[in-house]
Nucleic acid binder design. Structure first.
Length: 894
RNA sequence: AGGCGCGUAGCUCAGCGGGAGAGCGCUUCCCUGACGCGGAAGAAGUCGGCGGUUCGAAACCGCCCGCGCCUACCA
């Protein structure tokens, strides 16, 4: 910016290169100050609303966020320009375990544990941390250009949402849909909390399958059981076999001695046991395995916990007490071996559950927890998707959704951590009554006692986010916001939280609002690195979107994200692509710089006054193409085909508007016919405005900067109406004529290039175009042909002698000749023609075999047949020309 | 074990029933008055394999090979 380039022309021009950094800061500040993102609630206007998938307060913007929020912002800006009452509601999630872990790590650095400072102080400390650095990701979203209504920012633990959480909990409890009980849950021995099934990540692991002998009580013989976790045998309370298993039809006795513990345990018959697996005998450890727990319930077996909350063997483990679970495993195996009770050890690959927050191996464990009975809620959600009230895009995800919902199991919602919504349940110390209430109770509802102790567990983070679409709009109050913006229009999120979040919002929304939370769900892919690996800090393959924005600008990143968002496929991001789209941003910038040289004291055309038919071909053509692009971009965005919208714009702006129209219109702008000049300026201005508006949802910064630099009084582009179809501009004839023109120009350029004629060399050319209508089009545009090909003299004939010693190019039935100053390289020309001849001949053969096929003629649609005939005609015309040329050259050669 | 998705130009990916496409990279030429973050002209693909449906298949169906991912209570 400092160096004024000498090539800069006068006038209020843009800098030579787009300096995104300052521009981005300037406009974002302006938009915020002017409250440009504020939702409107005007009667009579349709609403468009999105609630943001709230990032974790612990979060730092990663490429997944960049993709997710770019797509949301594209839709929001698009609808806002279309005139909707538009709300994009932002916020963050308290992310229970994740956040608690962060603060615990901080404490650990100070050699303190959360237990040292106690619950109250710990929570204060988390809040303090949240206030200090929780806003980080919000600022990063602002850098991305997100047009969220920041005055409405919410947090899953703010006052309003906490009220909603209590209300929901209390109501569900009252309806019997929340209950408390002893069940097997997934326990993380490191986080010291229960986890929902979904929060466990299964990993295929190479382990061992231990076959252990359980002797009969009489001392004669034994049963062999198999297990991957021998340490749990210490808690066995039975062995189970299948009732229909012949091997066990006539057992000598109905009990065995549990090795190492010397406890007699019964043999029970249960159909859960797979006869085919191992020996068909299953050890039953009710306190440490879900299936065993269920078997135990069916057979009234006792449960015995042998492990504590940290994965250390407890006093029930006898001599193994105090050992870590894995130390114990080794010792147990060793001892069994010594006693000759270890039949064999096999290599065995199986799935091992890990904590999704800290990767520790999860231990199934018996414990008292709170659950949501989800089946009745799931039914409503299934019905809503079936009925099309909520549509999932891409549709293939609907199957996955149904599959999960049909097989859904009760949701464990209690967590033994401190950061989160404390469960609103109290126990009366006097009479033991359990009280669930949305207000803190002061006395026992039963005995009026005042010694009430609140449940210490907190709720699963996803419990509060399940309420997000309506809790953020003011529920349980009956607010104007709910009336205007619920159901929300679309939820845009990553497919990996379809179950965690989307399904649960569906269930809660339908239950409490009696209405779906969103009409559309758009699930986008995961961003991976260039090798297809999931990006993660531990792998060190993360791409930091902040650095990308520093280097290439926000608009380049946004355009890349939009262009990559093809449905149903993972995204492999590489820096090259971002750089490529940065070039595109620069291209737009420079197209505008050029345009500004000419439109300074001009005005865009009034569309209604425009009579396309009276305009020169270049204008008719660009207007027709502009209209098609408007239609395509609108259609694509309406259908969430983000990549199609981006590609349509890229193709049009660069390869039609810049490559052809701007070069073509230069003839008008630099000419001396004032009327032609004025028309050129007007159309250029008009099309340019449309392009900038079309681009704005994807690249907000550069378009706002450009908008402000265009002549005329202008406020923000954000509230300009989005371009709409102008049917009068549609002009297939002009597009055909332009194709002809471009074909000829390309032909001339090809000859120059292939024959090595220097760009500044004088050139004369002859075109033989037998069709009168076409030759007239070329004649009318001959000046432009000269300008675009740097040909000095052009002869356009409908028939005539082919010039001797000329290089040629055949385009359909049109022949283009450029006489060469020196001798024509006959051999080279012939080689070129031969190649072309072969290509055309193959094409023609294909077409003719089709046309010679009576079945094709009978069954193919008429327009396809007609198309083939036309193809045949032009191909054979072309082939004939090629053959003639070749003959002439052969002749010349001799 | 089921389910989903993917194998198209050197690389990254669109297309998903009627003439093989884009970006990057590559080759040659061009300091043409918006842009070298540029312009022009090119080279480059038995559209994973085999069968089937169809007048016509990269696209639809089946099987196979290779690669991802998700769900799952065979220890």
């Amino acid at each position: 910016m400092e160096n004024k380039s000498e090539t800069q022309a006068p006038g209020p021009l843009l800098a030579k290169a787009y300096e995104f950094s300052a521009v981005e800061k300037k406009w974002y500040a302006y938009w915020e100050e002017q409250k440009k993102f504020a939702a409107t609630m005007d009667d009579g206007k349709a609403s468009f609303s999105i609630v943001i998938p709230p990032p974790n307060v612990t979060g730092v913007l990663h490429v997944g966020h960049a993709l997710n929020n770019t797509l949301q912002d594209v839709m929001v800006r698009f609808r806002r320009m279309q005139g909707y009452n538009t709300l994009w509601l932002p916020g963050t999630d308290h992310a229970g375990i994740a956040t608690q872990n962060v603060v615990e790590r901080q404490l650990a650095a100070e050699n303190v544990s959360r237990h040292d400072i106690g619950r109250k102080k710990f929570i204060d400390r988390v809040w303090q941390w949240k206030e200090e650095s929780g806003g980080q990701i919000i600022n990063q979203l602002k850098r991305l250009g997100c047009s969220c209504d920041w005055d409405r920012e919410r947090f899953t633990m703010d006052e309003g949402l906490s009220r909603a959480v209590r209300e929901v909990f209390t109501r569900l409890y009252g309806e019997g849909l929340i209950y408390r009980g002893d069940y097997i849950i997934n326990w993380c021995p490191r986080c010291h909390t229960a986890l929902a099934d979904l929060e466990v990540e299964h990993e295929a692991t190479d382990g061992k399958l231990y076959n252990i002998r359980y002797p009969f009580t009489s001392g004669g013989g034994y049963l062999v059981v198999a297990t991957t976790r021998p340490e749990t045998m210490l808690g066995d309370t039975a062995v189970a076999v299948h009732p229909a298993d012949e091997r066990y039809n006539s057992l000598p006795e109905k009990a065995v001695v549990l090795p190492l513990m010397n406890r007699t345990i019964p043999i029970v018959f249960d159909t859960h046991v797979e006869k085919e697996f191992g020996t068909g005998a299953l050890k039953v450890t009710p306190a440490h395995d879900l299936n065993d727990f269920e078997i135990a319930r069916r057979h009234n077996l006792p449960s015995l916990k042998v492990m504590d909350d940290s994965g250390i063997m407890n006093e029930e483990a006898g001599s193994y007490a105090g050992m870590d679970r894995y130390v114990c495993r080794r010792k147990v195996v060793e001892d069994l071996e010594k006693q000759g009770l270890l039949e064999k050890i096999e290599d065995y690959q199986h799935g091992v559950g890990h904590c999704y927050r800290c990767r520790t191996v999860v231990e199934p464990s018996l414990s008292k927890q709170w659950f949501v009975s989800v089946k009745p809620l799931a039914e409503k959600a299934i019905a809503a998707v079936k009925a099309g009230q909520t549509k999932i895009h891409p549709k293939t995800w609907e199957n996955t959704f149904f599959d999960w919902m049909y097989n859904i199991r009760d949701w464990c919602i209690s967590r033994q951590i401190w950061w989160g919504h404390q469960i609103p349940a109290w126990t009366c110390e006097d009479c033991g009554e359990l009280i669930v209430s949305n207000n803190d109770p002061v006395e026992c509802t039963k005995c009026k006692g005042s010694k009430l102790v609140q449940e210490t567990d907190v709720l699963d983070t996803w419990f509060s986010s399940a309420l997000w679409p309506f809790s953020t709009l003011g529920w349980p109050d009956d607010t104007k916001e709910l009336a205007f913006f619920y159901p929300t229009s679309v939820l845009i999120t990553s497919f990996d939280i379809l179950f965690f979040w989307v399904a649960r919002m569906m269930m809660m929304g339908l239950h409490f609002m009696q209405e779906i939370p969103f009409r559309d769900v758009y699930l986008h892919a995961l961003v991976r690195d260039a090798d297809g690996q999931k990006m993660s800090k531990s792998k060190g393959n993360v791409m930091d979107p902040l650095l990308v924005m520093d280097k290439y600008g926000t608009d380049a990143l946004r355009f890349t994200m939009t262009a990559f968002a093809a449905q149903g496929r993972d995204i492999r991001l590489s820096e090259d692509r971002i750089e490529g789209y940065r070039h595109f941003i620069n291209k737009i910038w420079n197209a505008v710089r050029f345009s500004l040289l000419h439109i300074q004291d001009s005005q865009p055309c009034v569309v209604a006054d425009l009579e396309p038919a009276s305009l020169a071909l270049e204008h008719q053509w660009i207007l027709s193409r502009t209209n098609k692009t408007v239609l395509e971009v609108q259609r694509a965005l309406n259908e969430y085909r983000f990549n199609d919208a981006a590609h349509a714009l890229y193709q049009f702006v660069w390869h039609e508007f810049c490559d052809w129209y701007l070069e073509w219109v230069k003839g008008d702008l630099y000419g001396d016919n004032q009327e032609v000049k004025e028309t050129g300026r007007g159309i250029l201005f008009t099309v340019l405005e449309i392009i900038i508006k079309l681009l704005h949802p994807i690249t907000p910064f550069v378009t706002e900067e450009i908008w402000s630099a265009l002549p005329g009084d202008r406020s923000s582009i954000m509230t300009e109406p989005y371009p709409q179809e102008i049917a009068a501009w549609d002009n297939p004839a002009a597009e055909d004529a332009a194709d002809l023109f471009m074909g000829v120009v390309t032909g001339l350029r090809n000859i120059r290039s292939e024959t090595g004629i220097h760009p500044s060399a004088h050139v004369r050319a002859t075109i033989i175009c037998p069709q009168k209508g076409k030759s007239e089009i070329l004649e009318e545009n001959s000046k432009a042909i000269l300008a675009l090909t740097r040909v000095e003299e052009l002869q356009i004939l409908t028939e005539g002698r082919r010039p001797k010693g000329a290089a040629s190019y055949i385009f359909n039935e049109i022949e283009i000749f450029v006489p060469l100053a020196g001798l024509v390289d006959v051999a080279q020309e012939l080689a070129k023609l031969e190649k072309e001849q072969a290509k055309v001949a193959t094409q023609l053969k294909k077409v003719e075999s089709k046309l010679g096929n009576s079945k094709f003629l009978a069954k193919a649609p008429a327009e396809v047949v007609a198309g083939e005939r036309q193809k045949q005609e032009s191909l054979s015309a072309k082939l004939a020309k090629i053959n003639e040329s070749m003959e002439r050259l052969q002749h010349l050669k001799e």
